[in-house]
Amino acid sequence: MVRRWQQLPLDHALAWAPSVRSLLDDLAGPRGPVPDLGPAVLMDQLTVLVYDVCEAGGGATADLTSRLADLRRELA
């Protein structure tokens, strides 16, 4: 997904940024909201939060996999 995001023209990235930000804020949970640092760092923020969720384990990882796959398909 990171590679695909990097290939998007800026206007497309800006159009999809709210969807990614929504996922970020959901993943952050009570720690959120995640600061809006612009589209250039969205994937870095997503990478960190995905790692945190995976490290925490639990049932959230199955939902996370589905949500990431959905987002990736939307970016196509």
Rank of each mutant, 00 (worst) to 15 (best):
W5A: 03
A60L: 13
A62S: 14
Y51M: 12
G59R: 11
L68R: 01
L27V: 05
Q45T: 13
E74C: 06
P35V: 01
Y51W: 10
G58E: 02
L49F: 09
W16V: 07
L49K: 10
P35Y: 00
C54E: 14
W16Q: 15
G59L: 07
V48S: 12
S22L: 14
D11K: 10
L14C: 11
T47S: 13
P18R: 00
D25M: 05
S66N: 09
D52E: 14
R4C: 06
L10C: 01
P9M: 00
A56C: 05
L24V: 07
D26L: 11
V20N: 02
E74P: 00
V41L: 15
Q6C: 06
M43G: 10
G32N: 04
D52Y: 10
A28C: 10
M1E: 09
L49S: 03
P33Q: 01
D11V: 09
R31D: 15
G59Q: 08
V2A: 09
R67D: 05
W16G: 03
L64P: 07
E55A: 14
L46M: 13
G58N: 03
W16A: 13
L49A: 04
A17K: 07
A13L: 00
L24N: 03
G32E: 03
L42K: 04
V2E: 09
A40V: 10
A56L: 09
A62C: 08
L23G: 02
L64R: 05
G59M: 06
P35F: 01
L10Y: 03
D63H: 08
L75K: 02
H12L: 11
D36F: 03
S19Q: 13
A15C: 00
M43F: 13
L68V: 05
T47D: 13
R72K: 08
D36H: 10
A40W: 05
A28K: 04
L46N: 06
G58F: 04
Q7S: 12
L75R: 01
D26P: 06
G59C: 04
T47W: 07
V2G: 09
V41C: 08
V48F: 10
D70S: 14
G32S: 04
V53C: 14
S22M: 08
Q7C: 05
P35A: 00
L49E: 07
T61E: 06
V2F: 12
A62P: 06
G59N: 14
V48I: 09
L23A: 05
L10S: 09
W5T: 02
V2Q: 11
S66D: 12
L24D: 01
L24F: 11
G57Y: 01
G38F: 01
R67T: 03
G57L: 08
R67K: 14
L46C: 10
A40K: 11
L46Q: 07
